[in-house]
Amino acid sequence: MQQLEINKFTKLEEIFKTYPQTEETLKSLSPLYKNLETPILRRTVTKIATLEKVASVSSLDVYDVVNVLRQSVGQPPLETEQ
């Protein structure tokens, strides 16, 4: 399967499909993400939401979310300096 570079524009569906292990990693980041266990939510949200959106509804920084997931699949962290 083609390597998928995870960044803030990547949709959950693509990430979970390419790296299934990231789903548990994401859920561990915030109680809000546990809602993804509800099938109807999972089906629709993963199709539509990007990591940027996912981070924006929690108190997490988008790069923290992106880099935790990148790390879990062996990708180097993205620079976050402004």
Partner: peptide, 25 residues
């Protein structure tokens, strides 16, 4: 389309799930 389809079932969700659905989808 995905949202309309899902909205038929969202009424079964609790407030927190419904809010997560609204925010994320």
């Amino acid at each position: 389309k995905a949202i309309i389809e899902a909205l038929h079932q969202v009424s079964e969700l609790n407030q927190a799930e419904a809010l997560a659905f609204c925010k994320l989808a």
